[in-house]
């Protein structure tokens, strides 16, 4: 099966490298040169990650589902019940092989929204909730560092694991 999106991105990069960027660099507009370089860099990043967006979305939803389960241990029965509902929905989406990146990301957004609300309204249970949120955020942030590593922003690139090493925890 031909991979049309990736071939298209590769063709766009080739055009930017061979035609557009050299032509812009011969001109006298530094802003246009800057834009051309950013577009080229972004296209290269998109191509490098084109095959991984769905996997990234699955990893995020898995991580936030686990975070919500852990937070449930520290909140009132009512809030725990609401979280249980949203966790169950997340597991259904994860188990469905037809779930696409958009569905996965949308439900991750729902869980994050619920957890943010818990952080904001928590009172006596707040220390345990904060502890759980921070400790469970680390794996997902490290995964995101890895995903965005090709952009070259990370000041400690040697500590970033290859994205391929991330797999969904059971």
């Amino acid at each position: 099966m031909p991979n049309y999106p990736e071939v298209t991105l590769d063709a766009m990069i080739h055009s930017m490298e061979e035609v557009i960027t050299p032509a812009v660099e011969r001109g006298d507009d530094p802003v246009a040169v800057d834009h051309a370089r950013i577009l080229l860099a972004q296209l290269r990043f998109q191509l490098a990650r084109a095959a991984h967006w769905r996997q990234r979305a699955r990893l995020e939803l898995t991580a936030y589902t686990e975070m919500a389960v852990a937070v449930s241990d520290h909140v009132s029965p009512t809030v725990a019940s609401n979280l249980a509902e949203i966790v169950a929905r997340g597991r259904v989406i994860l188990a469905d092989p037809r779930s696409d990146a958009e569905q996965l990301e949308r439900h991750t957004g729902n869980i994050r929204r619920a957890l943010s609300a818990v952080v904001r309204i928590a009172s006596t249970e707040y220390p345990a909730v904060a502890h759980t949120i921070v400790s469970h955020s680390r794996p997902v942030v490290e995964m995101q560092r890895s995903f965005y590593a090709p952009m070259g922003w990370d000041a400690d690139a040697l500590s970033v694991r290859p994205f391929e090493e991330f797999s969904e925890s059971p």
């Binding site: 834009h35 950013i38 972004q42 990043f45 921070v134 680390r138 942030v141 965005y148 952009m151 000041a155």
Partner: peptide
Amino acid sequence: DALLMWTHGVSSSIASDLLTILD
């Protein structure tokens, strides 16, 4: 706007630093 969406990518590195201090 193109540059702004490129700087989007730095957030996870900064978030990692933030979590280290919060840890």
